[in-house]
């Protein structure tokens, strides 16, 4: 009998600190699987964000650095320029990548840095207690939009992937979702493409993942997946953007 599934070497055997139904565990796992499958564990350097995933390096079994909130792509730019032979990726949430770090995101993309970006969009700030994110949906209740996001005063959900797709140096952007096993398989394919693009020197590649946050959505894990499918994916359509 062939062994077709096992614990990735790139994933440490630690229990995660994430809430029930959170998408981070899934995202960490498939990144670890891809790193193993591509045989790049000894070359990869991961950037952990400020946010719920700040201790991602406790789960990944390869070289990692923290980056200050929003600055991951500036840090990653320098690491990759200094060590072009290494495979460098950032792992960033919506607040990190599309609010406090918008400038670093846009300019790293505009320079066409040969980096892989994993963008976790869960439409809310998790670590700080469920405040409005740049990607919070219209009408969505958060700690700082108790009556729901009013687009006329709080702004519209920011579609940073579509914005980045306008930049000539950006090579690949795809939006995927974690709302079903089939979608997770597609997400893994997209993330693998984003890593392969770096290995093949193709250039800046970003995968946006619609990822559940049951705790701050005030929903059960099951209901959260349905909400992604029925509501969130309507605002943030899935598929290849560039």
């Amino acid at each position: 009998m062939d062994k077709i599934y096992s614990h990735p070497v790139s994933l440490r055997d630690n229990s995660t600190h994430y809430c029930a139904g959170c998408g981070h565990g899934t995202a960490h796992r498939i990144i670890a699987e891809i790193v193993d499958e591509l045989g790049i564990r000894e070359k990869v350097i991961g950037l952990a964000p400020v946010g719920c995933a700040v201790i991602a390096y406790e789960y990944w079994n390869f070289d990692c650095s923290e980056a200050a909130h929003g600055r991951a792509l500036a840090v990653a730019t320098a690491i990759k320029r200094v060590r072009p032979e290494n495979i460098v990726f950032t792992y960033q949430g919506d607040g990190d990548l599309a609010a406090i770090g918008t400038n670093e995101t846009i300019h790293a993309a505009n320079r066409g840095e040969n980096l892989t970006v994993i963008f976790i969009n869960n439409a809310v700030y998790g670590m700080t207690g469920g405040q409005m994110a740049p990607t919070t949906l219209a009408g969505q209740k958060t700690a700082t939009t108790p009556a729901g996001r009013d687009v006329l005063s709080h702004g519209f959900p920011l579609k940073i992937s579509e914005m980045l797709a306008l930049l000539p140096a950006v090579k690949y952007i795809e939006r995927v979702s974690f709302h079903s096993p089939q979608e997770i398989i597609k997400a893994k394919q997209a993330i693998k493409t984003a890593f392969l693009n770096q290995i093949n020197n193709i250039g800046f590649s970003l995968v946006e993942i619609l990822s559940p946050c049951p705790t701050y959505w005030g929903m059960s894990p099951q209901k959260s997946l349905e909400w992604i499918k029925e509501v969130m994916a309507k605002e943030f359509p899935l598929g290849r953007i560039k």
Partner: peptide
């Protein structure tokens, strides 16, 4: 040698953080 005109002072110092982390 690597020279980058950064998009901001924040980006510049964080690039230094990254380059130093990578051993430069």
């Amino acid at each position: 040698g690597i020279f980058i005109q950064a998009e901001s002072e924040l980006a510049a110092i964080n690039m230094v953080y990254g380059a130093s982390a990578a051993g430069a």
